[in-house]
Amino acid sequence: MLLLTLLVVVGGIGLYMALPRGRTAPARGVLALLAVAAAAMLVAILINLPSGIVTPARPTMVALSVLALLAAVRVVTHSRPVYSALYFVLLVLANAGLLLLMQAEFLATGLVIIYAGAILVTYIFVIMLAQQTSGKAPYDTEAREPLLGCLAGFVLLAVLAGGIYGTAVPGELKRAGPGGPLAAEAIDVRPDLAPNAALLSDVNRLSEPGPGHGTTERLGTHLLTSYFLAMELAGVLLLAAMVGAIAIARRQLSGMEGAA
């Protein structure tokens, strides 16, 4: 648990250092060093998780997670918007990979197509459109209240992580065996630990869902049966978004004459 908090703190400092400041971007070396340190820390965590089981997917999952986090860090810290967008694409791909590991094929592919394909393209398009000066625009290098921002973000992360990973239990948790579920008596000693205990014990939920769990056909029927209304609403939402975008675009033309 302490290790996790340590990770979060180091991550916070690193990111803080990484955020664009008045002067030139931080030396690449420092950035790389920090990123690597953070990644190593993360890998150590993931590995010595109390998992009696070693599933074949573990190493790839670790790699993809690290990749995703690094990409995310770069998206946030990079001073040039275009590179941020590109790193975002990398992130999406890493995410898709993780989803695949979880047998959510349709979602993974959907993610890649919609996100990487549609949304990011629009972003890049707008970035190009709104690029006025060559060098770095002042508002890109200058971060606002970086300290407070990082503080807020990482505190949130620390707490979430703490919540997920297991509470800072004053007494030592007694375990049936290495990596086994929390002994029953530990639970009744600290009744409020019940939910996390269940979280920790992966063993009894390893039942594989069987092949084709996340395939389009399964997901499609699921969507159209139990979420039929939601689907319709999503359609309407998209329609509204389109109409909105067109309205803004049209007014923008007339507005232009005024502003120009």
Partner: peptide
């Protein structure tokens, strides 16, 4: 930012 800070503090408290 202030909202985020608020959430952070609340989370810590919780």
């Amino acid at each position: 930012l202030t909202t985020a800070l608020g959430i952070a503090v609340l989370a810590l408290l919780w």
